[in-house]
């Protein structure tokens, strides 16, 4: 009986011990993935910003500029690309919609971002674009990989269509979460005009004919929760200028937009709550289950060995053999 029990315990011990590395190094990369059908929006605001008045072609102070950023997973496109990429893929159709204080559109920039659902590495396929221009991304955008490390990452900048390092600046506490702070500075760079302009009749082509060019610089900061790789807060010190050409009436440059763009408070709260929930799920695969099953496996193994040792121990001294006395003969 004891021997059977020890064998059952041994099987359970091996089951648990094997589950530990299998969960961490097999199940985690296969199960921790960005859902292909993810839909997410975030609102950012720049208070007391400077905005170009296209009527007068002069910069003016405005109380607020709002940026609505939407990410929408295209499931059908992801399934199609997966067949050739041979890995799980997410296709995000994104839109950055900028709205002035009067509620009118300032600019809108669509993007299509294709990436590996677990590692966040870019996947190159037809349709990858920024504002209709085909791009070939390197590095990450919008989100960091699961189990983000304390190091610099390559981050794609949609305005310049280039990738440059985003530097790890330290760790801090943010609303009960440990976050890694990252910062990227994009120096003044000439960038294309948005395809959608705020004034009817003005197109990138008509602006190009005047010789006026658009320049941009930004300092962007993200506070990233390292387990999920999700930014819980973001801000940008963003500057745009129009330079040269006949459109500016002899001026060298005019500010098109300047402002400190920050996530709206209700979206910060919502994102923190969402990340806290998802963090628990990722930790289950990377920490709770592997450690718990390993400990349980060792405990069961010890119990199994104890039972086996007891089963082998003799129960007591063997009875002495009874011998019949021989008849005595003279």
């Amino acid at each position: 009986m004891r021997r059977t029990a020890s064998l059952v315990l041994l099987a359970c011990a091996v089951f648990c011990a094997a589950l530990s590395p299998l969960t961490r190094w097999y199940a985690f990369p296969h199960l921790a993935r960005i859902p292909a059908n993810q839909y997410q929006d975030v609102v950012l605001e720049a208070r007391n910003a400077t905005l170009l008045d296209y009527g007068t072609m002069r910069a003016k102070k405005v109380p607020q500029v709002t940026i609505v950023q939407t990410l929408k997973g295209d499931v059908a496109a992801a399934r199609k690309i997966e067949k050739t990429a041979h890995r799980p893929v997410v296709v995000w159709n994104a839109l950055s919609y900028v709205q002035g204080p009067d509620g009118k559109m300032v600019s809108e920039v669509p993007e299509r971002y294709i990436f590996d659902a677990h590692s966040q590495a870019p996947v190159h396929a037809t349709g990858e674009m920024v504002d209709g221009d085909p791009v070939r991304r390197a590095g990450i955008e919008f989100k960091w990989p699961f189990l983000t490390q304390k190091r610099d990452y390559e981050y794609f900048d949609a305005q310049t269509r280039t990738t440059s390092p985003i530097h790890y600046e330290g760790t801090r506490e943010f609303r009960g979460l440990k976050v890694y702070c990252f910062e990227q500075t994009v120096p003044w760079t000439r960038v294309p005009m948005p395809k959608s302009m705020p004034v009817k009749g003005i197109t990138p082509q008509t602006v190009a004919r005047t010789g006026t060019t658009r320049w941009y610089t930004t300092v962007r900061r993200f506070w990233v929760e390292p387990v999920t790789g999700a930014p819980v807060y973001g801000e940008e010190i963003h500057r745009e200028e129009l330079r040269g050409g006949t459109l500016l009436g002899g001026r060298a440059e005019v500010t098109a937009f300047a402002g400190d763009v920050k996530m709206r408070e209700d979206y910060v709260e919502h994102t923190v709550a969402l990340v806290k929930h998802n963090r628990t799920l990722v930790l289950a695969l990377t920490s709770y289950v592997p450690r718990g099953t390993l400990a349980l496996g060792l405990l069961l193994l010890a119990l199994s060995l104890v039972l086996e040792a007891r089963a082998r121990r003799p129960a007591g001294p063997a009875p002495a053999p009874t011998t019949r006395p021989r008849p005595v003969s003279a």
Binding site: L19, Y26, N37, V68, K72, R79, A94, Y97, E108
Partner: peptide, 25 residues
């Protein structure tokens, strides 16, 4: 243990359908 992990992996994460919600303007 292998059977359990492979079964969970085979079930995978549900991909669902593309959200009907629009890109916000």
């Amino acid at each position: 243990a292998l059977a359990l992990v492979l079964t969970i992996d085979a079930l995978g994460t549900p991909s669902g359908r593309t959200s009907p919600k629009p890109l916000l303007t």
